[in-house]
Nucleic acid binder design. Structure first.
Ligand SMILES: [Mn+2]
Ligand SMILES: [Mn+2]
Ligand SMILES: [Mn+2]
Ligand SMILES: [Mn+2]
Lengths: 220, 220
DNA sequence: AAATATTTTTAGATTTGTCTAAATTTTAAT
DNA sequence: ATTAAAATTTAGACAAATCTAAAAATATTT
């Protein structure tokens, strides 16, 4: 089946929201999509008609199994294109989201599969997010955010929670990228900020808010 | 300024039609776009309002200078993406048009420029059509169709006139691609068909209709 | 439990792009 | 010069996606 760009964007947003909260409500989706609650309700009816959504009015909603499959294909395309933009076209990682937001709607299945192969079947996108495979399966990694890491243990940055351009820009300033080796030297009780040592750099301090959005795994 | 996908498709079609005939009329555009004359008229009004078109009702129309620039950028994107699909993703040349028809509407200028560089700033797309540069300038080549070539002279295939999948499939069957060396052995007066010799193959016969759509230049 | 606030849905409008059918204009034929 | 044919435009309708304002349902507070 084929979906409009708008439908795909809604489906993807619902998918991301329900990953966190299980069930999604109208206002949070409206906020995520930068649209109005009334518009969301209209689209929910369409998606329910197409059996992509479990939805009863006033009761919240979540994707059906079919809906989830559609969402995963859009996510797959988004992350593969982001990988292409960074690895092949040398875009900075904080510049690719908006472009991938358009490219993810190109419809050819063969294109996606060939792109995947051309890129060497990558498992993670430039922000460390897992790329679903052709069947929608997602590779898992054991990762935790920096606030949960014991002191002095060296870990590797594996992904970024908040991917707002502001956050990514900040990480660029700190010289933190995926794969960067870090250890936590000190945790300050007053505001939860962390003193960290970044490989080959002088120790510096990051706020708790930033630390919570830096995910890491133990070095192999 | 930014245009909708539909506007871009109309602008591009008008551009291609006026390349041949100077001025364009409603019905031929409707045919080209697989739409109805009434829809064309509606869009003409929009494009005229946006100063992309010189248009007076019942009198035909053509692109303004601004309109031509927009068209050339869309053509540029279309042909760069086609090149990408064939050279990098190894698509057959008869499978890329429909996909490029979508990709040409991705809006980022930086993307186009980086793609161009990544591909090595190609001058011609997989069908031998020239790729406009950033400023809309088009490389020219001296080419003629096969019916105008003197007998026994060896020439190189440089582009294809009719690019319908049926035509491209046929050329694939004949083993004719861009760069293929050909010479005309004989011209049959009865139906205008040509006996030709394709490099490393036995002589074969092609119809006048096919010959007219094979453009060639003299080998360097 | 009643009143108030929040969330969600409906009603009705708007924009974009399309369509059919009818009217108008231009062109070609008698 | 009329008439007939072809091309083009207008009138009016429709689907998709959005919006604002008002109504309805649910949740929270007194
Ligand atoms: Mn998108
Ligand atoms: Mn990403
Ligand atoms: Mn197109
Ligand atoms: Mn082409």
């Amino acid at each position: 089946m084929n979906f409009t760009i708008s439908e795909e964007n809604y489906i993807k947003s619902i998918y991301h929201l329900q990953q966190q909260s299980g069930i999604v409500n109208t206002n949070s989706l409206a906020a995520q999509m930068h649209t109005r609650a009334a518009s969301v309700t209209d689209m929910l009816k369409k998606l329910k008609n197409k059996k992509l959504l479990q939805y009863e009015r006033y009761k919240g909603f979540k994707l059906s199994e079919t809906g989830k499959k559609v969402a995963l294909q859009v996510v797959r395309k988004h992350r593969l294109w982001e990988f292409f933009l960074v690895e092949k076209l040398k875009f900075d990682w904080d510049k690719v989201h908006a472009i991938a937001e358009e490219l993810e709607h190109i419809s050819s299945d063969e294109l996606v599969q060939r792109l995947d192969n051309f890129l060497g079947n990558p498992s993670f996108d430039p922000h460390g997010d897992p790329i679903p495979d052709k069947n929608g399966r997602i590779p898992t990694i054991n990762q935790q955010n920096l606030t949960n890491i014991p002191l002095k243990k060296t870990v590797t940055v594996s992904s970024v929670g908040n991917q707002a351009p502001q956050m990514l820009e900040m990480l660029k300033h700190y010289n933190i990228a995926l794969g960067t080796q870090v250890s936590v030297l000190n945790k300050f009780e007053f505001d939860g900020s962390l003193q960290i040592k970044i490989f080959k750099q002088n120790p510096c301090i990051i706020s708790e808010q930033v630390a919570k959005n830096i995910f890491v795994h133990y070095a192999e």
